[in-house]
Design a protein around this nucleic acid. Sequence first.
DNA 1: TAGATTGTTAATCGATTAACAATC
DNA 2: TAGATTGTTAATCGATTAACAATC
Lengths: 207, 207
Amino acid sequence: MDKFSKNQLERYPVYLKYFKELWSEKVAIVSSPVIAGKLGYSEEQVRKDLQAISKEPGRPKKGRSVSALIEDLETFLGYRQKSSSIVIGAGHLGGALLNYPFEEMGFQILAGFDLDPKKIGTAVGGKKIFALSDLNAFVKANQVDIAVITVPASHAQEVTDLVVSLGIKGIWNFAPIHLEVPLNEAIVNVNLASSLAVLSHQLGAVK
Amino acid sequence: MDKFSKNQLERYPVYLKYFKELWSEKVAIVSSPVIAGKLGYSEEQVRKDLQAISKEPGRPKKGRSVSALIEDLETFLGYRQKSSSIVIGAGHLGGALLNYPFEEMGFQILAGFDLDPKKIGTAVGGKKIFALSDLNAFVKANQVDIAVITVPASHAQEVTDLVVSLGIKGIWNFAPIHLEVPLNEAIVNVNLASSLAVLSHQLGAVK
DNA sequence: TAGATTGTTAATCGATTAACAATC
DNA sequence: TAGATTGTTAATCGATTAACAATC
């Protein structure tokens, strides 16, 4: 398999977290049925997911090596090669992301950007906050792979256009709108309103 | 259609945001091809999505009434009936959520809970932070529909068990792990590591 | 050896896309 | 009327699940 669906990609970090927990408990081998039971996936899905990213085959009757799985997953997910990012919008959500422990995921935040003069020049989560007008110069001076968009929805498209024009190829959008980007741009949306819609609907069914 | 897929549910808030923008621009009628072009969906998908939630049919050659769509979407998404929630874990991410403008989505945060004595008794985003030991009494005194979990992954399962035992039926989990919950529990995960995995993979393909 | 688990191939399921008649 | 857009039915596509031979 060399094509990965969105759902499948989203499962990999969940596997990794679980395997690291097992490793810390000195568990060296784990089988698909055990993983499936623990994470709520089907056995077949676990096997396919792990086969797709692991070099070492599993051993019938035993299972798979936890340490090998951790290595394969970290390699596949890119946790062993840093990608550099900036956070645009140092409000509450942007501030939380500037403080989030992304380093262990190979995701390094270089700096934050904002329009508010009161924020510019300060540091959040150990990262300096620059004026948005400094973005051009910053991107020219530093390799920036990903822009995290945490500005209000009303400004998200214009900030995105700027980021795209500066040659940044990855966008992690936290504004609750659809952003128009060129086809060769990588973009992933984290839309809390969308997430909440799924929860509300589930809750309506449960009640 | 009376069954909604996760993807479909996630699209509705995006439609709603767009229709509200149209409404503010005095646009009264909109057609599926226009919506599809703007939001990056297919025409057929737009028609099916809107048919599934709207009472009023669209008019051939014209399109659909923007105001009717807004009304239908707000009703369907539950924005017109408040659900009450609490945020457990008043760290950076929990703090951001306590400050997030959820009210317009019919989502009301009543209070925050934490273990840190320095946070207990303070207010974040206008919401008071209580000790986790006060949770039981709080839930008995207030109707709580949803618990937002923003504690570290290492404590998320135990907090979840507590929340479930108190009869809260909805869980919005921001900890990057799989939580075990009873079948009659509504749960939605927002896993930043998962989201990042999708972005990294896309970026690898784009580069 | 017996049996659990693997990897792989086939079947199922569900969502998206295509096709097209109905209609304003 | 002509033509754009609707609603609906059929076809396609892709992911998940089931089945089963291989193997340690």
